[in-house]
């Protein structure tokens, strides 16, 4: 039982895919102009990750080694297309906001990375929890990033205006430079926290 928790929780803090493993930066920077988009992208990626982890784990015995990467890609791309079609039909506004980055979930190195590093060598259940943990960790990081950017760059949170009429938002935050800089500081912050933890446990 605790092993399950271990596989699940590592994706959230210790091995957060975005902030520690530095995977999935493209969508992270592009769509986090609003918290709503961050959550949408995070959950969509989580869905694809969990499904592909499960399928890869199921077929891990029969895939010849040489073709495993293309095989993984086919599996991942299929689930991405399914998510794309689903959002297009049932959540049109979100689909429009995420735009180009929905099909780009395919090349989110986080998903291919977990398929290769974990799901192809572990049981279905463990792969499920690994995928879930990584995906939720990714989503959490996206939410934090987009919170900074939306509040400072647009004066809103989840579309709700927070400040009065006189507030002039720092538009830079929702432009590309703001994305890079905010993520940079977040990564630095997480590094600092980890270092302090190491020092404390080292003593």
């Amino acid at each position: 039982m605790s092993k399950i928790w271990q596989e699940f929780s590592k994706g959230i803090f210790k091995e957060n895919p975005l902030l520690i493993l530095l995977l999935g930066m493209c969508p992270a920077l592009a769509v986090t102009t609003a918290v709503e988009n961050g959550i949408g992208m995070g959950l969509a990626s989580t869905f694809v990750l969990v499904c592909s982890n499960i399928v890869v784990s199921i077929i891990r015995g029969v895939i010849p080694n040489k073709v495993r990467i293309p095989a993984f890609i086919v599996v991942i791309a299929s689930f991405v297309t399914i998510v794309d079609l689903f959002l297009n039909g049932y959540m049109y506004e979100l689909w429009k906001s995420l735009g180009l980055f929905i099909p780009l979930i395919v090349v989110n190195c986080m998903i291919l990375g977990r398929a290769e590093a974990f799901a192809s060598r572990n049981s279905i259940m463990m792969s499920f929890f690994d995928g879930l943990g990584m995906g939720l960790g990714f989503t959490l990081a996206l939410v934090v990033l987009s919170t900074f950017r939306e509040i400072l760059g647009n004066g809103t949170f989840f579309g709700i205006k927070l400040f009065g009429e006189g507030f002039e938002p720092a538009v830079l935050m929702i432009l590309p430079p703001g994305a890079f800089i905010t993520l940079g500081f977040m990564v630095a912050g997480v590094n600092a926290i980890n270092k302090r933890r190491e020092e404390r446990s080292g003593k």
């Binding site: 010849p64 299929s78 079609l85 689903f86």
Partner: peptide, 20 residues
């Protein structure tokens, strides 16, 4: 093996496409 996977994927996608 690769062809088989692709065919299965193709079917799954065609199904989803028709549904949506």
């Amino acid at each position: 093996v690769l062809t088989l996977i692709t065919i299965v994927a193709g079917f799954a996608l065609a199904l989803t496409f028709n549904l949506t």
